[in-house]
Amino acid sequence: MNKSISKGLRVFFFLSLGIIILWWLYKDQDPEKLTEILKKDVGYGWIFLSLIMGLLSHVSRTIRWQMLIEPVEKRPRTFNTFLAVMIGYLANLAIPRMGEISRCAVLSRYEEISFSRLVGTVVTERVLDLIMLLLSLALMIVLQYNAFVEVVNNKIDLTRVGNFFSSIWFLFSLGLSIALVYAFRKNISNSKIFVRLRGLWYKFKEGLFSYKNVKNKPMFFIHTLLIFTLYFLMIYVCFFGFPFTRNLGAGAGLAVFVFGSFGMVAPVQGGIGPWHFMVISTLLFFGVQAPQAAAFALLVHGSLNGMIVITGLLSLVALPIFNKK
């Protein structure tokens, strides 16, 4: 099968899966009830504040990415870097995980920086993001242990996952793969594609370990912390915009943020479906009624992704104008 067709079918499959999950979550909801909540019960000023928090997190990510790029090549212009970041977020709404490649391609073109090195810096960013997400999860377990146990027990079958990795078929496939690579190691190491990949790897590695040569390491880690703090506030300030979440507290906000973040990890455009599922399930645990939880997830997800669409499209327009020369 043609690679482009295969990729297109995979994207279509996950998007369809997300839409099916979304339909399943909202099929029993009364549209009039949802509309009434969105019209009468929402303080949209808090939603607007949430969008500002989101934009500030993207600015902080822009500065942190500049700090990673500078040691391996040169410090790119701030405006171009910010536009590339926003175009990357927009690309993720079209094809999951495409944003990381897209922003590197954009910045490589307009700032004349090695694409491979840029990809290495983005991988470093993602590793840092994963560490911060795990730290957020650990903090949430300490503060909201009952919520963690409830959601995990009801939504995740850890036994099935463990059975897969301990199955004879998985172990046999892993052993066979290692044996084949070892048997043909000389042929592999002398092949043109391997030599090409090795050259790309050296540039990629420079970007990957660029954090070691960051000039201002304290500020770099401050921005790493600030990005996730703003991510959390982006969700938590929305609590004050709804009467049914206003008094839940920061611990509940942290739980919604963490479980929602794991929903965003799913390979579905914009986390459509999985994000709603995780957020609604968490809010139900804290005593929010189903129609109210559904309205919260629908509005918060829609507004934040709407902001990404608008700023991403504006970035696409602004990029060639700003770089006319």
Rank of each mutant, 00 (worst) to 15 (best):
S57P: 12
D28Y: 08
L68C: 11
F296E: 03
S173C: 12
N187S: 14
I141G: 01
K74Y: 08
S60M: 07
K39P: 06
I308K: 08
D129Q: 02
I113G: 00
K325Y: 11
G263N: 02
G312E: 05
A105H: 07
D129Y: 06
I235S: 02
I178M: 09
K39W: 14
P291C: 05
G99N: 09
I47T: 09
N2T: 13
V181H: 03
M234V: 02
V152F: 12
Y182I: 12
A294I: 05
S167Y: 02
L22D: 15
M98H: 10
N154L: 12
L226R: 09
L248M: 07
K3N: 11
G306V: 14
G162L: 06
S102M: 14
T245H: 04
P96I: 00
G253L: 04
L133R: 08
F228R: 03
F172K: 13
F220D: 09
L230N: 02
K40M: 06
L93K: 01
F164L: 14
N190Y: 14
I113N: 00
L158G: 05
N146I: 11
G273L: 02
Y182Q: 04
I193C: 08
P96E: 00
L316S: 07
I321M: 11
L171P: 07
V42H: 03
R109G: 12
L133M: 10
K33C: 03
G263H: 01
L133Q: 08
N92P: 07
V258T: 11
T159Y: 14
I168M: 14
T81L: 03
V214F: 04
F232Q: 05
A252S: 13
E206R: 04
P218K: 01
S261K: 01
M1H: 13
M1T: 13
I272E: 01
K7E: 15
E73I: 09
M307R: 15
I310E: 06
P96N: 00
I188M: 04
V59T: 10
S210C: 03
R160I: 14
S210W: 03
F232I: 09
F228C: 11
L226D: 05
V300A: 02
V85S: 00
V279F: 01
I188V: 13
